[in-house]
Design a protein around this nucleic acid. Structure first.
Length: 640
RNA sequence: GGCGAUGUAGCUCAGUUGGUCAGAGCAUGCGGCUCAUAUCCGCAGCGUCCGGGGUUCAAAUCCCUGCAUCGCCA
């Protein structure tokens, strides 16, 4: 029996709602966890939410609720999403959980007692509006980018974690365990970072400016810095230090993270573990970003694809398959509906779905739906090596999946599916069926094909658990919940002759994007990608927004900004407005156009340019479209 | 500004230590089959392997340089 397996996702910071990135990470974790179930019964899968820190306090303030109410709400969104994506996590941890907080205190105390935490004073640029420090670099013209006020230099005392003491140890550890951080590119990135002296990590925040956190056990005037708090979830969730789960699973821990949090996981975390005297995790598995329709996914651009949308339109398993098949784990990938549909049609509908359907249909046609008995002598005589192909696919698949190369694992399965289709072509059962003397051959051929489908159903289980179960059912294997065990897949002749099969079905319907778009009544398209409607407002609420017609007088790109245009508009008075439409509008194309402006929006500095108001525009998959008027209107006219 | 990654067929990408390495899948064209979700099987075309220079008998593969994109750091 293989050793136990423990996989974690990061605990997601609850200052934003779940998006595709969260879904990918969590599905990937679910896939590896299910993959390991194929060889061991001892697996544990943890996800959760990270709920402390000043960003949470500010987000809560914005929504007029307490931090507690706020984190409960957002954490709930994550917890509710996972079942819909068929995520099989065993536990869901929250950093506001008292048991977690106790573990954080305990480990802080332990490191403190060991002498790796010291108290020190430092000076920094602080914006009282934002309640945070800024580096010189982050300032715009020496001012806070949010408040346009100069930050003040203040002195603050804090606790620091002596990471520098462990720098060489960490370098050695990474070099002695070449796949500690994988893929290799991220290992190299961490090592590159470690070539420079490692600074100590500030691990506290004075309560005078932040209360939402875990109080330091050795100084009640401070709370713990969020990363220090958050990383410990991986052990607290297992019941560190005495829990059975901890004893079983911590020694085999593996993490999955996106590349943006490589540093905390690749540097802070192993050093924290070392300093606290805990075993170091086994592997850090780092993946890239999903770019949406070529442009970087970003909340501010508003092109975040709701994972549930695609799932609802094309089916959950197809969605999971696409995410796992199209991204080379570690690299960035593009997410587009076209790519998704192409995968569905080519791989799922044509290759697998059609294979399944044609094989089952033939069993019905030639054997009344009863699994035939294969003949060893005939098998030997025909010698077409399907069993060998299956075995080769399983081996290649297992190696790839073990190393988080999901795309390669699935490619191996699809190579076998191609062999299966070819096998149908070569053996031509419809010809064998015409010849009574070839009955035994037909029985053997059809049995082999059913066997191949059984293997396939097992191999796709981690990525497409529902489809795997459906295939099993239609292969007459219902009732067994361990059909995906590797040892079963490796044993050819697992199907029982004589079992009556259900009617053939289409596992994956083909998608015709053109047809879908031709009659494209816009409402249908819009409804498909539209975000949920915001909560109801009154006419008075609306009246607060001063929308005006404005004529664009001039337009020019903002230096060093890819998406921004600086516009001078006439709305009775002349104003400067910065708008993120450069990707879709040439400056000269805008001059003279009448646009709609939010005239009473609080001014904001974008890339150093003060923007007094905002252009109304629509953003969809095709890009940005500026809202204009039907016919000319006097500049400055209000809209209502 | 410093460091690093990437740049290969229309698209997405494989190409280990330099020598059938010019590849795969999708898309396109043609042919075949008819069990099947107009699916499957076979064949074919397309590439100055980012530009330039160098090392070598031999470079997509090593070195230098330029360009582009991206990332990390300051």
């Amino acid at each position: 029996m293989a050793e136990p397996f423990y996989i974690t996702t990061p605990i997601y910071y609850v200052n934003a709602r779940p998006h595709l990135g969260h879904a990918y990470t969590t599905i990937a974790a679910d896939v590896v966890r299910r993959f390991h179930r194929m060889s061991t019964d001892q697996t544990f899968f943890l996800t959760g939410t990270d709920e402390h820190g000043d960003k949470i306090v500010r987000a809560a303030k914005k929504e007029n609720c307490t931090p507690r109410e706020y984190v409960d709400k957002i954490s709930g969104l994550f917890q509710n999403l996972w079942p819909e994506l068929n995520i099989s996590n065993d536990a869901f941890i929250r950093t506001t959980n008292p048991a977690h907080m106790a573990v954080v205190e305990r480990i802080l105390q332990r490191i403190y007692d060991a002498g790796d935490i010291y108290f020190s004073e430092y000076e920094g640029l602080y914006c009282f509006g934002c309640e945070r420090f800024y580096t010189e670099r982050e300032l715009v013209d020496g001012c806070c980018p949010d408040h346009q006020t100069p930050p003040e230099t203040i002195k603050e005392s804090n606790y620091f974690f002596k990471m520098s003491r462990y720098q060489q140890w960490l370098i050695d550890h990474i070099e002695q365990h070449p796949d500690f951080i994988r893929p290799e590119r991220y290992k190299n990135e961490v090592l590159a970072f470690l070539r420079d002296p490692l600074g100590d990590l500030c691990i506290s925040r004075p309560k005078s400016r932040l209360q939402w956190g875990i109080t330091l056990p050795f100084d009640s005037d401070y709370v713990t810095y969020v990363w220090f708090d958050a990383l410990l979830n991986y052990v607290s969730a297992l019941g560190y230090p005495d829990g059975d789960l901890y004893k079983t699973y911590w020694p085999v821990a593996q993490h999955i993270v996106a590349k943006d949090i490589l540093k905390p996981h690749g540097i802070y975390w192993p050093i924290m573990l070392k300093a606290a005297g805990l075993p170091i995790y086994q592997h850090l598995n780092v993946h890239g970003y999903w770019n949406v329709d070529q442009s970087k996914m970003s909340k501010s651009i508003g092109n975040v694809i709701e994972p549930l949308e695609m799932k609802n339109i094309y089916g959950l398993d197809a969605f999971r398959f696409f995410l796992m098949r199209d991204m080379a784990f570690g690299l960035d990938s593009n997410f587009s509906e076209e790519a998704l549909v192409q995968r569905i049609n080519a791989d799922l509908a044509n290759d697998l779905g059609n294979l399944f359907s044609r094989v089952i249909a033939m069993v019905h046609k030639y054997f009344g739906g009863v699994v035939p008995e294969p003949d060893p002598a005939v098998e030997k005589e025909m010698d077409l090596g399907l069993e060998h192909n299956a075995r080769a696919a399983i081996d290649a698949y297992a190696v790839a999946m073990e190393a988080f190369a999901f795309h390669k694992g699935l490619a191996a399965v699809w190579e076998f599916i191609t062999h299966m289709n070819k096998y149908v072509d070569v053996t031509a059962p419809w010809n064998l069926a015409k010849n009574k003397a070839a009955r035994k051959q037909l029985e053997t051929v059809m049995y082999n094909l059913l066997e191949g489908l059984r293997i396939i159903s097992g191999l796709i289980y981690p990525v497409m658990p529902d489809t795997a179960a459906t295939m099993q059912k239609h292969l007459g294997m219902s009732g067994t919940d361990d059909f995906f065990k590797l040892e079963k897949l490796c044993a050819w002749r697992g199907l029982t002759p004589g079992v009556k099969l259900r009617k053939s079905i289409s596992l994956f319907p083909r998608v015709d994007l053109d047809k879908k778009r031709q009659p494209a009544e816009p409402p249908v398209e819009v409804a498909k990608t539209a975000k949920p409607i915001k909560p109801e407002i009154t006419i008075d609420d609306f009246a607060k927004i001063d929308l005006r017609v404005a004529t664009v007088v001039s337009a020019q790109p903002v230096p060093r900004a890819k998406k921004l245009l600086q516009l001078e508009v006439d709305l009775g008075e002349t104003r400067t407005i910065v708008s993120g439409i450069a990707a879709d509008y040439a400056p000269e194309a805008l001059v003279g156009k009448q646009v709609i402006v939010v005239a009473n929006l609080k001014p904001a500095k974008l890339m150093g340019v003060l923007s007094k108001g905002m252009l109304i525009a629509a953003t969809d998959a095709a890009g940005v479209t500026v809202a204009t008027l039907d016919k000319p209107v006097t500049p400055g006219t209000p809209l209502s």
